[in-house]
Amino acid sequence: MSHSHTKETDGPEVYFQYEDIEQQQETYLVGMWSFLVTEVMFFGALFLIYTLYRWKFHDDFYLVHEQLNWKMGGLNTLILLTSSFTVALAVHFAQKGNTKLQMRCLFATILCAFGFLAVKTFEYGAKIDHNLLPNHHFQYGHVEGEEEHHVESKWDKMLPSVLQVEKKEQHGNPQRARLFFSIYFTMTGLHGLHVIIGIICFTALMILIKIKSSLITDYVPTEMVGLYWHFVDLVWIFLYPLYYLIPK
């Protein structure tokens, strides 16, 4: 089952159930892709829900989406694209056997992931302060006794002025606004959960590499976690224009 060899000449270890290393690596990757297909199904249903309500209530969705901060969303897009880039480099260095650079790229990816969550914290914090989380505190639009419904948030004030929310008056049907924020929090929340799981996976991978675990015989574990991370990036590539940049 295991052979003594030097990796440079013989290739990585082939486990007993596989014909050769090609089949072994392909099996791992197809397994990961099968998982990603279930993820596509999972997010696919949510994208369908979004499409349905956006199609039905486009005008309200347009008015409500102005409450979202497109600059913060853009910053997160930048962060996630960068992290995808560092993961691609990590896989590249893993394939070449350059563990030092591989670890640096993985570390940079984890930093990006935390950066993403930090931006999301500011966004969610402001939304919750604005009573836009669709729970029993939810409040949107005109309030009796007020000329215009203005909203303030300590999370928004902490940001440099260029990143603050531009639109503070709330327009559109409050019930549809509630619907919008239900879908928004569900989809971005699930996406955020995937980011957290990604951080855990990358950390575990780095520890296993660091302690020279026998589980890591080649680049494939890095490639597999990388595939997962690229998928997380992929979801955000669609979430960003669909939520933050709704056309009139």
Partner: peptide, 23 residues
């Protein structure tokens, strides 16, 4: 897809050269 690759084709990371995305 198990092709006849010589052992010398593996990199230190256990990959075939043709699976590596260039920098």
């Amino acid at each position: 897809m198990a092709a006849d690759h010589g052992h010398h084709e593996y990199t230190a990371g256990g990959a075939h050269a043709h699976h590596i995305l260039p920098q």
